[in-house]
């Protein structure tokens, strides 16, 4: 029965035109970034390598390859994707309440827990498909446009050079990690959605929470660094970057297949999974007791 409800939820999600806004927006943004880097890529890299240009002889043409462009795209757009996720997940329950269909759903022989889980499942599938779409455009598109070379990643005043043959798995890992992070956002939006009878509130609330925690994280003041940031999901959402920071030998050569801080990646993953479970539990407990008056 649960699979039937999940199928129904997916059918509803992908029958709504608004679902495809996100796919269109992502394709457009990626194409714009790729176009900009194709035209002014060297200037863009110079901006990042200004401090290192005196120390190294920087091979701009080699750095500007498909992998580099893909990382740049991810840096630019992943922070904004929560808004697109909130548009769908924040509408899951509240949108039904607003339409008046929630009472039809909840009056059928399905449990409210099944409904929440099916809606969460549908949101997760949406997140995964959105990221798959993003990876298709960002990775495949960039490789087609810019070719493949070793990937150079800038981290503060350091450079991480990853061999061409060691890159692809990192992208897949990063996309999976991003899926986990965005699923946490979807779970939060769904939770807000159970509290409301109109779509706007949960969507705005989700975006506000992301903005507030992002600002707190960027303040970099000890009081937040020690108390809030270690547990803030916005901190851990950016964990995907960790797959592009590699371990180095004493001589400074990068070690193939390594990540600089695997422990931090695991911890971030666990914190995000914890948030997903917490948000889901709150949603289920609240929704089971909710009087449906809409």
């Amino acid at each position: 029965m649960f699979l039937d409800i999940l199928r129904i939820e997916l059918f509803k999600v992908f029958k709504r035109p608004r679902t495809f806004i996100a796919f269109g927006a992502i394709a457009l943004i990626i194409l714009l970034v790729q176009f900009a880097l194709k035209v002014n890529g060297k200037d863009f890299i110079q901006l990042y390598t200004d401090s290192q240009a005196d120390t190294f002889d920087i091979p701009y043409d080699k750095i500007l390859n498909g992998y580099f462009v893909c990382v740049a795209v991810l840096h630019m757009i992943l922070i904004h994707v929560p808004l697109l996720i909130a548009l769908i997940a924040g509408d899951m329950i509240s949108g039904e309440a607003n339409l008046g269909t929630l009472r039809l759903l909840a009056g059928r022989p399905v449990t409210r827990t099944q409904l929440i889980l099916a809606k969460f499942g549908a949101s997760t599938v949406y997140v995964i498909l959105l990221l798959a779409w993003m990876s298709l455009f960002a990775l495949l598109g960039s490789i087609l446009l810019f070719g493949k070379e070793d990937l150079v990643v800038f981290k503060e005043n350091d450079l991480h050079i990853i061999k061409n043959s060691d890159v692809l798995w990192r992208f897949f890992a990063a996309f999976i990690f991003a899926a986990l992070a965005l699923t946490a956002i979807a779970a939060m939006a769904l939770m807000f959605s159970t509290f409301a009878d109109n779509s706007l509130g949960p969507i705005v609330a989700t975006v506000c929470v992301v903005i507030v925690f992002t600002i707190v994280q960027q303040l970099k003041v000890p009081v937040f660094e020690e108390t809030v940031n270690p547990w803030s999901f916005t901190t851990h959402m950016l964990g995907w970057k960790g797959f592009f920071y590699v371990e180095k030998t004493a001589e400074g050569a990068t070690i193939n297949g390594s990540v600089e801080n695997a422990g931090a990646l695991v911890r971030s993953g666990l914190v995000l999974a914890g948030y997903i479970i917490l948000f889901l539990l709150i949603s289920i407990v609240y929704f089971r007791k909710k009087d449906i008056l809409s």
């Binding site: 509803k12 029958k15 339409l99 269909t101 039809l104 009056g107």
Partner: peptide
């Protein structure tokens, strides 16, 4: 049990 509760708000986009 089958029911219509107040006005039947169905999925308008289906």
């Amino acid at each position: 049990v089958g029911a219509i509760i107040e006005k039947p708000d169905l999925y308008r986009y289906l």
